[in-house]
Structure formats: structure tokens, C-alpha cells
Amino acid sequence: MLLDYCHRLDDEDWDAWPGFFTEDGRYKILTRENFDADLPLGIMYCDGVGMMKDRMLALQTANIFEPHTHCHLLSRPALSGAGSQIEARTNFMVTRTMQNGAMEIFATGKYLDQIDLSSSTPKFRERIVVIESRRIDILLVAPL
């Protein structure tokens, strides 16, 4: 699931993204600085699958940006908890490649997940994406 999530995003299978979450799942990207200071407001925040679907529709139809692709690299996850509710922490790195070939590390950080195993497919009840840098280069349109 952790890998599949990244592959779907890298492959720009946008409509698959909300399906990785429980109906009331939460997704938030925030800076390490804000996470450590316990500030509530993220750079991207979806409270429930509805907001995730809106994000994906906006990305595909409303938002305007220069074409680029992402590529995720994942560390091995550290899993904890038992039963149907487990937690995972995984480091990640995402590169961004622009249409002229310019490629850089766009973001790096950690995924802090709460995963629900009670149904046939595991789903995120919560995925907090803590990015190391406070700076976003140009803009952030696709989820990490």
C-alpha cells in the first residue's frame, strides 16, 4: 500500500489517490518547523475524501501550472501498533522534473501514518506529510 500510493502518484493516476483513505481520512502536508511547533495549518489539507476529490479535480481542470513530473523514493517503513489499527513512519524523497529536463529534489521528509486494516484493503485514517524544508519551490499542486 505504501509503495502503491507512491507509484499511483508518480503515474499521475490522480483519481486513485482519494481511494487510499478512509471516508473521513485526513491528509496534511506541513513543514517540520510547524509540526514541531504544533501549529494546525498545513500547506495542503484535506479533511475527508470529498476534499481530496476536489483537490484532484482542481489539479486536472482548474489549476494552471507548468508541466512537471514527480518521482517518489521511499525508505523502509517502521510499523507499530497491533490489531486493525497500526502506525507507520516512512521517510521519502520526491524529485521534480520540469518539461525542459531540469530535475531537482522537490521535497524530502517523513510520512506519519495511521492505517486502518479492518477492511479488505488497508486505508489511511491519517497521513501527515512532514517536509523538511519550509520553502516550496514555485508551487505545490500534486499531493506528496
Binding site: L41, I43, Y45, R55, N63, F65, I136, L139, L140, V141
Partner: peptide
């Protein structure tokens, strides 16, 4: 509503480019 603006703002992200 923090989603509306900022680097990933649904409304304003175009201003980044």
C-alpha cells in the same frame, strides 16, 4: 480555508509560476 492560498493554494497557486 488555508487550502485556498499559499504555495499549494487551490485559488492562488498559479501565482507561484
Amino acid at each position: 480555508q488555508g487550502n485556498l492560498t499559499g504555495a499549494a493554494g487551490l485559488v492562488s497557486l498559479e501565482d507561484g509560476c
